[in-house]
Design a protein around this nucleic acid. Structure first.
Lengths: 80, 80, 80, 80
DNA sequence: GATGCGCTTTAAATGC
DNA sequence: GCATTTAAAGCGCATC
């Protein structure tokens, strides 16, 4: 790679990355507003977030995680 | 909230959240592809990521500095 | 406050803050090592973290959170 | 692991974690007191916090820069 | 090709 | 209640 070409190319790449990162910030803002709207209507956003996360997760995996947590809890005499 | 929890409204909100999260995944994918492209051209993506990070830190630092200047300005203004 | 006194005093305060923050980093490191040790013995650190968190929480609060999550889940036809 | 889960070992680990977390709370308390002391002397703690943050950013940025230099150095070294 | 590790990103908690 | 700070999760990379 000749130096000049690499420098220009690098610049282009960085600009493209920074552009998509700006887009990401925009979309994040949109999501934030939806949660904010939900909150304004009285929903519990913490529960909402958990629910969205669980729906995204693999079902079997979620149950497995819960089982381990319960197992550990029982081992130390804690009711989960 | 009407019937224990407003199920329809809840569903709508969750669907909207899931839609923007899909958008987010798309944008993430775009970024991933740019890095992948860079890698294919022989750039060191770890270094590239650091570079992007430093540039972001610069911007953040500049903003922090402006914010602190403003705070100090207010402090002086208030003490006159 | 005369300027010179304030400047010296400010410096002292900042140094003290930075010192306690270093201590904090040390303690964090200790905790990290315990988790790392646990992991080395085959424990699931994700479950371990959750357990520690639950123990720290108020019991009633935890159950309340779980109840809301289930309620929302049922409302949209999701089994938690 | 012997009996489903090594209960005693688990307990010990959790106790150790909880102990270091108590230490952390102590150190946090120390920091809080310093800020409180500063406030009592008329310093603007919000500005103070920003100042500490900027100094931390400086250090972080310096380290990032060193890291990137090292990465570039390696890249050149490898291409010889 | 799986496992582990470090870094980025996301969620939760705290303090004003 | 909002902004900041802190903790947890997820992701990508490198290694075996």
């Amino acid at each position: 790679m000749s130096d000049i070409v690499a420098a220009d190319r690098l610049k282009t790449l960085i600009e493209r990355i920074e552009r998509v990162e700006e887009e990401m910030d925009g979309v994040k803002e949109d999501r934030k507003e939806i949660y904010s709207e939900a909150k304004g209507e009285g929903f519990d956003t913490k529960a909402l977030r958990k629910l969205v996360k669980i729906r995204k997760m693999d079902r079997a995996k979620y149950q497995e995680e819960q089982a381990i947590l319960e197992l550990y809890g029982q081992a130390i005499g804690e009711n989960i």
